[in-house]
């Protein structure tokens, strides 16, 4: 089924499952595991009353590949347990056609004089395709490039211009096609999931009477493990949480 038939698909999925869905890219799983906070996914999953999905490509990145290494073998085993417990579900849909189409488009939006800038990889784009396929509530992604493409494509152009020292242009036709295919996609990060976990009291046992420090600690923890949240955003969160 093509992505252009999403409204039909949406109705179909809602009718069939009636369940909400979040789709996880590799990054947030890695950040949460490395910050020893992946366990919060169990309670969040229950509270969500829906399913947390990963794609085959993400599974390959966070389980299959590290299982063959020495350095991150245990982390891979740890993540596998979440799949075994169905806290994370492996999407079994074949999204090859949609993924390849989105990958081709996303990698031909930004151009230098002579080259298309190939900024994205299959796993990230497959997760995006799955969000559309499931009509999921959001894509959970910790790295900034895909988030920028979805939310502020002009910002990404400016960044590329500045960093590459060459004029980078946007192929408006490809960008429009890409945006038409993905529609409105909500993007969240592991940091926002942790704020909700914090508000739900899941981490209270660590507070030791100082919830401000707890919030500061979990947000900096996930930032230092690779979640693309700025220090300023952390400061804002702490402030509007009333500390």
């Amino acid at each position: 089924m093509s992505l252009l038939e999403q409204p039909f698909r949406k109705a179909l999925m809602e009718g069939v499952t009636g369940k909400k869905a979040l789709v996880f890219d590799s990054g947030p799983i890695i950040s949460l595991v490395m910050d020893n906070l992946a366990w919060t996914l169990r309670a969040l999953n229950k509270k969500f009353n829906g399913d947390f999905y990963i794609t085959n490509e993400v599974k390959r990145e966070v389980i299959d590949k590290p299982l063959t290494s020495k350095r991150f073998k245990f982390e891979a085993m740890y993540i596998k347990e979440f799949l075994d417990e169905h806290v994370l579900k492996l999407a079994d849909e074949d999204l090859t056609v949609e993924t390849n189409r989105l990958l081709r488009l996303s990698n031909s939006i930004y151009k230098t004089r002579t080259e298309d800038l190939k900024l994205f990889q299959k796993a990230e784009i497959e997760s995006l395709a799955l969000v559309k396929h499931l009509n999921a509530e959001a894509l959970v992604v910790d790295e900034r490039t895909l988030r920028m493409l979805i939310e502020e494509p002009e910002n990404l152009k400016e960044l590329l211009n500045k960093k590459l020292g060459r004029k980078v242009t946007i192929d408006s036709s490809n960008l429009k096609q890409f945006q038409k295919l993905i529609g409105d996609v909500n993007v969240i990060r592991s940091s926002e999931l942790l704020v909700v976990a914090f508000e739900l009291g899941l981490l209270d046992k660590y507070a030791d009477g100082n919830k401000r420090e707890l919030l500061d600690g979990i947000l900096w923890g996930v930032k230092l493990r690779g979640c693309s949240i700025s220090s300023e955003e952390i400061y804002k969160i702490i402030k509007f949480e009333g500390f």
């Binding site: 590799s26 990054g27 890695i30 950040s31 490395m34 990145e61 966070v62 590949k65 590290p66 290494s69 350095r71 991150f72 982390e75 910790d142 790295e143 900034r144 988030r147 920028m148 939310e151 502020e152 910002n155 990404l156 400016e158 960044l159 500045k162 993007v187 926002e192 930032k223 230092l224 493990r225 690779g226 979640c227 693309s228 949240i229 700025s230 220090s231 300023e232 955003e233 804002k236 969160i237 509007f240």
Partner: peptide, 26 residues
């Protein structure tokens, strides 16, 4: 591995670059 990269990225200031902020966190 993305594990290695994410771990290293966390120690850089990349996430603090103004362009990286795309939506109001609130």
């Amino acid at each position: 591995s993305e594990f290695e990269i994410m771990d290293y990225l966390g120690k850089t200031g990349i996430a603090d670059v103004e362009f990286s902020i795309t939506r109001d966190v609130r």
